[in-house]
Simulated assay, not measured.
Amino acid sequence: MTSKILQETTKLSNGVLMPVFGLGVWKSSNAEAAQSVQVAIKNGYRMIDTAKQYGNEAGVGYGIQQALVDNHLNRKDLFITTKIFNGDQGYLSTLKNFDEQLKRLRLTYVDLLLIHWPVDGKYLDTWTALEKLYHEGKVRAIGVSNFDEKNLADIENLHRLMPQVNQMEFNPLVQEEHLLNKMNGLGIAMEAWSPLGGGEALNDGTIKAIADKHGKTPAQTILRFDYQMGVITIPKSAHEERIIANAAIDDFALSEDEMKQIQAMNKEKHTIWHQDFAWHKGSEETGVKDNVSHWDDTEEYLQKKVQY
Rank of each mutant, 00 (worst) to 15 (best):
F98I: 03
G87K: 06
D99V: 04
N97F: 06
D111L: 07
Q101T: 14
E100D: 13
L92Y: 07
R104I: 00
G87Y: 04
G90P: 11
T108K: 13
D111Y: 04
T94Q: 09
K76E: 15
D99F: 00
D88V: 01
L102C: 01
N86I: 02
N86D: 09
K96I: 03
L78R: 05
T94M: 07
N97W: 09
N74F: 06
S93M: 06
L78N: 09
Q101Y: 03
L102G: 02
L78M: 12
T81P: 05
K96V: 04
Y109K: 15
L92P: 00
N86E: 13
D77Q: 08
L95K: 15
K83A: 02
L92S: 14
R75L: 13
R106E: 08
L92V: 03
Y91D: 06
Q101D: 08
Y109S: 15
G90E: 11
L102Y: 00
V110E: 08
G90M: 05
K76L: 07
D111K: 07
F79W: 03
D88Y: 13
L78W: 06
Y91S: 05
I84M: 10
N97L: 09
I80A: 02
I80N: 05
F79N: 00
L95E: 09
D99E: 15
T108Q: 15
K103S: 07
T94P: 06
D88H: 12
F85Y: 14
K76T: 13
Q89A: 10
F98W: 03
I80V: 14
D88Q: 01
L105M: 04
F85L: 08
S93Y: 05
K103L: 11
Q101P: 00
L102H: 02
L95G: 10
E100I: 09
K103I: 12
L73N: 13
F98S: 00
T94W: 09
L73S: 11
G87R: 07
Y91K: 12
L105H: 04
V110M: 11
I84S: 06
Y109R: 08
L107R: 03
K83C: 02
F85D: 07
D77F: 15
E100V: 09
G90N: 11
E100K: 14
K96W: 01
D88R: 01
Q89D: 02
D88A: 03
G87M: 05
L105C: 05
D111V: 11
L92A: 14
N74E: 15
D99N: 14
S93G: 08
N86C: 15
T81C: 07
R106F: 12
F85W: 15
E100G: 05
N74W: 04
T82W: 00
L78D: 04
T94Y: 07
L92I: 00
T81L: 04
K83I: 02
R104G: 00
L92F: 08
K76P: 07
R75I: 14
R75A: 11
D77P: 13
D77A: 15
F98R: 01
Y91A: 10
F79E: 00
R104Q: 11
I84Q: 06
R75E: 12
